[in-house]
Nucleic acid binder design. Structure first.
Lengths: 293, 293
DNA sequence: CATATTCATAAAGGAATTTTATTACTGAAA
DNA sequence: TTTCAGTAATAAAATTCCTTTATGAATATG
């Protein structure tokens, strides 16, 4: 049985006429006659009683019509649904991102995306690096945004931008007017750092270790806003990603570039290798990769 | 979208392999590749991520698989259902018949039919002549069995057999040993006749009228069994169709042929003109027309 | 590094479907 | 009753579509 035949059956039944049905279907009448005959043969039952003057459903045809019509409608709905996904008029994008990115870079991007594609749902999950990779691996998310991804055959990474660390100092601090500070100079100050396990912290620990230092932070916090609060209270200097600083504090607190070495954190897109994305996710990814910060 | 493509989709998904799926579908692998590509194009979305080493559903493919599988199953169920009807393994036959026929000739016939086709349901409705025709006309029944059908463009009739009227007399009646009786001789007896409106009664009234007589029955009954009861009580002579007498009373009561004129009632099959019958109804009709009483 | 396996592609062949042209039938009108 | 108009069925030709054959490209395995 072919769907085309079923479609023809429904139209012939509706019009009680092969000629008019053929018109609507953009077919010639003999083609339609053949289609109905084939459908009847594949079902083994007559669907229409027809002569040159009238076409009428048989009892069995009458019984089958609503059933087949419903099934046809469901098929069409599936197709329509798929096409809406293809046209970005329906769908969901699932992302896992580092909290710093999820809180700063992504919101305006997602806002622009929603503006363009209001019917697409975006699910954003903030997680630490390792969980991002895991989520991408089991396809719990369409893609992830992380940092410092170790090479993994299952994962494919695309560099997005580099996040440079800056030192955030209290307004009253003697360094407040400086432009840049060397990393080893910071060791003398009470430091406010992110928890161990965060990608920002690993980067800082590694940099200090490379310089022969061991950091003992004055405060360890989970959220960047806490770090900012501690700085504002004059309790120490925080080392935070520049994206977060630019977006969240504006001119409120002074921040200094860190030199020698510059602390860079590459922010990368994480994709499951060899897997295509749903159209909506692809569109968002494209906006992300072509994005000028 | 074609059902064939959907079928292929399901099989490829099940096997995660074009080659093995093609095997199962009795196709070559390139043909299958083309089918899946076409399906993807008609839907506008990728269903599989594939390389030469692995075939895996995309997220959208994974979402669509159960839906399409269900729809495919429903289609197959419709086809299977139709084929079972064609093979007389499922279906219903609806008949409207005169009460005398419904009570006597049909039961053994239906019994034989059910023996041969146990899964077919037979719905038998007993009605008077006019209602039989109406039921056939609006296709409330597949066919009818009546008598004395006036020509009607919408109806087609097939003679089945002739029902001959006989006089049923009480065992103690002086005529009990006779073989035949003339119709005009019956007028002298107390007669037990069916209600006006029944086809048996019309036949009798007409016959008497032709002979210049007006019948005034001693009893008018609705059911033949009532008539038989009255005869058994010695209250009169009943004029009943021979089929009914043979089948229901056996040797219990004597009955006489009626001569000059013989009262015949043609029993005919009534069909809606130009309409085909469902397979089950056709089978029962065939048994009926080829039946030796 | 070679090999075997697997999916993709292109061209040729074959199958199925559609169109064109015609016939046969039916109901309505002359 | 006959004719006419309209309709579905049929047959053959043309076309479209699909499948196969042959081959290529990619990748994991030994």
């Amino acid at each position: 049985m072919h769907l085309r035949q079923v479609r023809s059956f429904v139209v012939v039944a509706r019009f009680s006429s092969f000629t008019r049905a053929a018109d609507l279907l953009n077919l010639t009448q003999p083609a339609l006659t053949v289609q109905i005959r084939q459908l009847e043969q594949s079902l083994g039952v007559k669907l229409f009683d027809r002569n040159t003057r009238a076409v009428e459903l048989t009892r069995i045809g009458r019984e089958m019509l609503p059933v087949l019509e419903r099934l046809l409608g469901e098929f069409d709905a599936v197709v329509a649904n798929a096409r809406e996904m293809a046209n970005l008029r329906y769908g969901t994008v699932r992302i896992a991102a580092l909290p710093s990115v999820a809180a700063t870079v992504l919101p305006p991007l997602i806002a622009r995306f929603k503006e363009r594609h209001p019917q697409i749902r975006v699910v954003l999950r903030d997680s630490v690096g390792e969980r991002i990779n895991a989520a991408v691996r089991d396809e719990a998310v369409d893609f992830g945004i992380g940092s410092d991804i170790e090479p993994d055959a299952e994962l494919e990474t695309v560099p997005l931008f580099e996040d440079v660390m800056r030192a955030v100092v209290p307004a009253a601090h003697p360094l407040a007017d400086a432009v840049e500070i060397r990393l080893d100079r910071l060791i003398e100050e009470p430091l406010i750092l992110m928890d161990k396990g965060s990608s920002v912290r690993s980067l800082i620990d590694r940099a200090f270790a490379d310089g022969g230092h061991l950091v003992v932070p004055a405060y360890e916090v989970t959220y960047m806003s806490t770090a900012v609060g501690l700085v504002r209270a004059g309790l120490g200097i925080a080392i935070l990603p520049s994206t977060a600083i630019e977006l969240r504090m504006e001119a409120e607190l002074p921040s200094l570039a860190i030199g020698n070495p510059v602390l860079r954190r590459p922010i990368t897109l994480v994709l499951k290798a060899g897997r295509s994305l749903p159209p909506a996710a692809e569109a968002l990814r494209d906006m992300l990769t072509s994005w000028e910060a």
